[in-house]
Design a protein around this nucleic acid. Structure first.
Lengths: 252, 252
DNA sequence: ATCGGGCCTCACGTGGCGTGAGGGTCAAGC
DNA sequence: GCTTGACCCTCACGCCACGTGAGGCCCGAT
């Protein structure tokens, strides 16, 4: 009873690792995992070294790494750590955009369900809790802390009764903008003037073009605004920031 | 001066929507967005209705929805809400698996950096904070609250000095298992007997086969365990749960 | 000799486009 | 009226990680 060297066929290895035979063929084809040798009949034969390498491959695959990167991590030189951290950064970015998608979708679902689409009052009085943080971060980064303080002061001047009036004004401006969008107007500059004035008053009588452009960016990316403007008319949430930026560009 | 009906060519629409012409061709090809009509020269011509539909498409695309689903959401009947919620559920699942990937990868990076790979003491004394929650949730779901209480009681009997001894024992068992793995042993039953005994004592002298199998599942999925066992030997983190389950299956 | 279950090599399909190749169309300037 | 350059068109292959046959060889058991 002679002891053969321990070797696995594709089927055996695939079963042990709970993957498909095709996957092993694929890894062979792209050079990621070659069999220890190929028998005369063409059969691929793997040994323990290959089985271990396969497990490593699957471990990294389970973290979402693509096969080319896995090959580099396993065979590359000293920069394993760099590559892993690069991958880690990518996962972070993915997680971030996923979180944004979820928020946007949630708002949309709420709107369709008939829940009030995040009342204007909440968006602007002064700003919703989550919105507030993003918004202030952006303000500070762009204009420094002074601006934020000024806005805070300006807001205190607005009594509640005033606020309702102002919200009504904004609603009218927005209705006009939606009409402009639906009629296909290219440059609703008069309405945007009014909008910028409105924002300006909210910000303590200052809204330089760059700030208005920044606000466009905020509208484009923030789930609360996105869902609210999308609810006004399909496509409006994407049109408005574009129009705002075109308007800013036109302010010579 | 006759007023032509407002129409956009592919290039104009693409530029306005900040997408590529190819994308419009693609949407036409799959029937997601057809031009209002095609001119005699073969040019695609879009009107405002199509422009709005495009904006809707892009809005949903930005939430990660695939084109077939978008078509259903836009053209389908009353089940818009269902489809949106189904998509929402998928995003949740994605987010969950992404979070697991990130944790696993983080542990691995920490190990490579030379940080202690999450000390055994922390994993088992009694359990790390995060691990604890998952673990208890699983225990409760599987065995009911009684079991959890019993384990808590059993743990109190273990003084700190005892604990160090026990950790040493576990380390020896694990070293043996790693050897078994690297030598390609198919059924390291004796070692797994020892391991189950060890676990059993931790759990107040009870570790039925099903519970041991459940532990295998925990090892297979939990980032802390994954990274720790992967650190012992490449591939070991995947081999061990398999071996544990085979062992359980063999307990007739 | 036959049968069932491996193993092999093509080779196309998936999704959402990118990126040419090769060729018609249109407004403007000469 | 002719050229130029910026549009437009239709194929058609490439990407990534395999799934899923199709068609055929190999091997041990009956």
């Amino acid at each position: 009873m002679e002891t053969r060297i321990e070797e696995y066929t594709v089927g055996e290895l695939a079963k042990a690792a709970r993957i498909s035979v095709r996957t092993l063929h694929h890894y062979d084809a792209i050079g990621l995992l070659k069999p220890a040798h190929v028998a005369a009949n063409g059969y691929r034969l793997y040994r323990r070294a290959e089985a271990e390498r396969l497990q490593e491959i699957l471990f990294y695959r389970a973290t979402g790494m693509d096969l080319a990167q896995i090959a580099l991590v396993l065979d590359g030189g000293d920069d394993r750590l760099d590559r892993l951290q690069a991958h880690r950064a990518k996962l972070d970015a993915d997680a971030k955009s996923l979180a944004e998608m979820i928020q946007t979708l949630d708002r949309s679902i709420a709107v369709i369900k008939g829940d009030p689409p995040m009342a204007l009052e909440d968006l602007y009085k002064p700003f919703a809790p989550e919105t507030q943080a993003d918004y202030e971060a952006w303000l500070v980064q762009t204009y420094g802390p002074t601006m934020v303080d000024e806005i805070a002061k300006a807001k205190e001047h607005l009594a509640n009764a005033d606020m309702e009036d102002r919200i009504d004004q904004l609603r009218q401006i927005e209705t006009g903008l939606v009409q402009a969008y639906q009629e296909g107007q290219a440059r609703p500059d008069a309405l945007l003037d009014a909008h910028r004035d409105w924002v300006s008053e909210m910000w303590g009588n200052a809204c330089p073009p760059a700030a208005y452009g920044g606000l466009a960016e905020l509208y484009r990316n923030h789930p609360d605004f996105l869902a609210r403007y999308e609810a006004l008319a399909p496509g409006f949430s994407r049109w408005l920031p574009d129009a705002m930026e075109a308007y800013v560009a036109g302010l010579t």
